[in-house]
Design a protein around this nucleic acid. Structure first.
Length: 426
RNA sequence: GUGGCCUUAGCUCAAUCGGUAGAGCAUCGGAUUGUGGCUCCGAAGGUUACGGGUUCAAGCCCCGUAGGCCACCCCA
């Protein structure tokens, strides 16, 4: 045997046995996108490094150490530009929004995508270098109602996918008006305790003081004693946050205000949130997160436009579904077509007729004895076997229920109806 | 980027003191020519992750590399 090649580190193959869970997750995401009137958008899997550096912030972990760089080909300047696989979808969507002049469209714009993201960090439970997200963005709506609607949408997603105990943690981190003062308050506070900070936090204090709150290495009393952004909000931000919380109460969305939640990306303003499984502290408990980014469009060269959105990590959702034992009903309306000797023409013709009628068919292509074919049919999960034999001359085939063993002779055109009655559940 | 544990058949695992690789499950075939699931018989499947070292002899001891798992940072 030739030397084998394995999947790249931090990536994995989606095998057929996991398909049911992924199908469910993607189906719910697509259906909710439809019901909440989001339109599909697709952006490239790679963009210029500069887009992410400017959009997410130079000091964000995603840019600082997790950028998955694409080595450019030789040739033109275009090809030699620095590219990176997208670590998150928002920057690309905002880039497209600006590039296509989408601000002139009747708004607010509601955009959604499902696709892979890439971060070059070390693989771990629930963390991969390639992972999948469902992302939704509302661009052009500054009001708190849309914050609540979007959070409620994510919450509904978790429920419909079958998960329980998912709660939203949220915070308001202010805006261009009040953040500078809060920022200074943090600098003042942490400067007093500079000897208790980690090297990393001392650096963050210079670059982005909010992210010192994110440093889990610091003693709890140090971060809990730090100034809270909620206490430093300007009147507008305070009112906005208050309304978001009230609306979530009205909608019955369980939420917890977390003063340490600042989020890893620099573009967030006002509302920031994260979805976690209650009681699962420590490891990769975040199932999704997002927030408002009222300054991002302008930062990337567009005219000032508010935005809000979230990304949900579908890999982690699938893992959580497995952990919680979410049941995924297996339809067994698959029909195997078996027959005798070399009557493949008959089998394929019958298979075609059944497919015309809309059912899933798997003809046996072998000339094995009938018993082997039936055994194989049951093993691949068929609920029914259609046995093609002499009676086909009169339009009849044997229809055998592979779970009960019952069998009778039916007309080919009646098979589909019998199968869709769906009595073949195991 | 840092640390710990690990790597033998497709999967889960054995292999005594260092003595030349085994089981269960799964797969495929058979058990008197047209009816599966149970049972029985049989076959196939390995450069013991890769590379080097020590030794008469290495799956086992030593070094390196890669990969996996777990945790930290951070996040989805």
């Amino acid at each position: 045997m030739a030397k084998t090649i394995s999947a790249p580190r931090g990536t994995r193959d989606l095998l057929p046995e996991e398909a049911a869970a992924w199908n469910r997750v993607e189906a719910v995401a697509r259906d909710l996108s439809r019901r909440y009137a989001f339109e599909r958008i697709e952006t490239p899997l790679f963009e210029r490094v500069e887009l992410f550096a400017r959009g997410l912030g130079e000091s964000s972990a995603a840019v600082e150490k997790e950028m998955f760089r694409v080595s450019g080909a030789t040739g033109s300047d275009e090809e030699r530009a620095e590219w990176a696989l997208r670590p998150e979808p928002t920057a690309g969507i905002v880039r497209a929004f600006i590039e296509h002049g989408m601000h002139v469209r009747p708004g607010p714009l509601r955009l959604s995508l499902i696709g892979p993201m890439f971060r070059y960090d070390r693989p771990q439970a629930g963390r991969f270098r390639q992972f999948s997200q469902w992302d939704v963005e509302v661009v052009g709506d500054p009001g708190p109602a849309v914050d609540a609607e979007v959070i409620e949408l994510a919450h509904r997603f978790y429920t419909e996918v079958g998960l329980t105990d998912v709660v939203v943690h949220l915070n308001s981190i202010g805006d261009a008006v009040c953040r500078p003062a809060y920022r200074q308050a943090l600098v003042d506070y942490f400067s007093v305790h500079i000897e208790r900070l980690t090297d990393d936090s001392r650096r963050r204090l210079q670059v982005n003081p909010l992210r010192v709150l994110d440093d889990k290495m610091l003693a709890a009393d140090l971060t809990e004693g730090a100034p809270k952004s909620a206490d430093h909000l300007c009147d507008e931000c305070r009112a906005h946050f208050r309304q978001v919380l009230d609306l979530l109460d009205t909608l019955g969305v369980r939420h917890i205000v977390d003063h340490r939640l600042v989020r890893g990306l620099d573009y967030y303003t006002r509302t920031a949130f994260e979805f976690v499984i209650a009681g699962r502290e420590g490891q990769q408990q975040a199932l999704g997160g997002g927030g408002r980014y009222d300054g991002l469009v302008e930062l990337l060269g567009g005219r000032a436009t508010p935005g809000i959105g979230f990304g949900i990590g579908l890999d982690r959702v699938v893992i959580a579904m497995q952990e919680q034992g979410v049941s995924l009903p297996q339809a067994s309306d698959l029909v195997a077509v078996v027959g005798f000797a070399d009557d493949h023409a008959d089998r394929l013709r019958v298979a075609g007729q059944l497919r015309d009628a809309g059912i899933a068919v798997r003809p046996d292509g072998s000339s094995r004895k009938l018993g082997k074919q039936l055994e194989a049919a049951a093993k691949v999960g068929a609920g029914w076997a259609v046995i093609v034999g002499e009676e086909l001359r009169t339009g009849l085939v044997g229809l055998k229920n592979l779970h009960s063993g019952e069998q009778d002779s039916v007309a080919v055109e009646d098979v589909a109806a019998r199968v869709s009655e769906g009595s073949a559940l195991p």
